[in-house]
């Protein structure tokens, strides 16, 4: 492990100032000399493996602003402070009641120990677990831009079938982000150029030619809060996660679904797909396919077909297309049948 300087600023502006001083404004955050750290459940691993090599870590855990650690529930929705731990949010009774899809996505992620460490903002920014990214002897465009992609023709069972490019097929593995993108969440960020709000759907970038640029954030910008708007019908929502074992595994396919039903007719559907795409994935065509339709197995299947119409399989991950569709069908029907 390379030596690094460890900073513990005590307020947001000091954290931003530190990062600003030790990064170039055009650095990709993932490659910047100074990087933020909160729960250390992802970055610390990657530093040990030599995948991430920041010279300086800016630890956010001592930031004094109380809002960073609060879950505030108002008529406008829920505001999660960036440093709220996943476990705390998952166990919050109002989150569970108003947004089962949010609570479910958190509860089904990682392990109890990790959920108690990992911050919500850090969770949405977690990096891919692509095996070829994790191990520095392989070529990887995300880790070393321009070095190539070993996964493309390699062992790619867990890789993405949606949103991939010729440079990268690494999956975005997070669960929470699927709930957030489905519910039109908004991210509050603060950097040297001031504070701003970013629609969650604009936070992550598809890999394209620059898979090392993963988000819209600048290297000196931190997430301070995540807001989920008030959606009364989101009580009819759930997160379904399909994986190789019962717990502590990434999704092979997952679906975040919220339904506004009029009888069995769909007024509005929100659908996001996990485990199958390079970024948090809102399936708008599937939502549209259900609009004003009666939700039954046939319409759910049609929506699933629409969601995966553009999917591109590789050698080992072709099953994810069929699995992704079935996961969505099952999630839609289970959401329909929820007692709310």
């Amino acid at each position: 492990m390379r030596p690094f300087v460890y900073e513990q600023p005590t307020n947001i502006s000091a954290a931003v100032a530190l990062a600003s001083r030790f990064t170039n404004s055009d650095d990709a955050p993932t490659r910047a000399n100074a990087q933020f750290i909160a729960g250390a459940t992802n970055l610390a691993d990657y530093m040990k493996l030599g995948v991430a090599q920041p010279d300086r870590l800016v630890d956010l855990n001592r930031l004094a602003e109380p809002a960073l650690r609060q879950i505030r529930i108002t008529d406008d929705g829920i505001r999660f402070g960036a440093l709220v731990r996943m476990g705390e949010a998952a166990d919050n009774s109002e989150v569970k009641r108003r947004y089962p899809v949010v609570a479910g996505s958190l509860k089904l992620a990682a392990s109890g120990q990790i959920r108690n460490m990992a911050s919500l903002a850090g969770n949405v920014l977690q990096r891919t677990r692509c095996e070829y990214f994790r191990e520095t002897s392989w070529p990887c465009n995300k880790r070393v831009p321009g070095s190539g992609c070993a996964a493309m023709e390699g062992f790619n069972r867990q890789h993405a079938v949606l949103g991939a490019s010729d440079a990268c097929i690494a999956t975005y593995h997070g669960d929470f982000a699927q709930a957030l993108i489905a519910l039109d969440a908004v991210v509050h960020a603060e950097g040297s150029r001031g504070a701003r709000k970013i629609p969650f759907a604009k936070l992550h970038r598809r890999p394209g030619d620059t898979p090392h640029i993963e988000t819209d954030l600048a290297a000196d910008e931190i997430i301070t809060a995540i807001e989920v708007p008030a959606i009364p019908w989101a009580r009819r929502s759930l997160y379904l996660k399909i994986r190789d074992r019962e717990s502590y595994a990434f999704a092979l396919a997952s679906a975040a679904v919220a339904l506004d039903l009029d009888g069995d007719k769909v007024r509005e559907a929100r659908i996001a797909l996990g485990g199958v795409a390079t970024v948090p994935w809102r399936a708008r065509t599937a939502e549209q396919a259900l609009q004003d339709k009666a939700l039954d197995e046939a319409s759910a299947k049609a929506a699933a077909e629409a969601a995966f119409a553009d999917a591109e399989p590789r050698r080992d991950n072709a099953f994810k297309i069929e699995l992704g569709k079935r996961t969505l069908v099952r999630a839609l029907l289970e959401t329909r049948d929820m007692k709310v």
Partner: peptide
């Protein structure tokens, strides 16, 4: 990525 059963399994 090398999966073994966990308690829940």
């Amino acid at each position: 990525d090398y999966l073994v059963p966990v308690n829940a399994d």
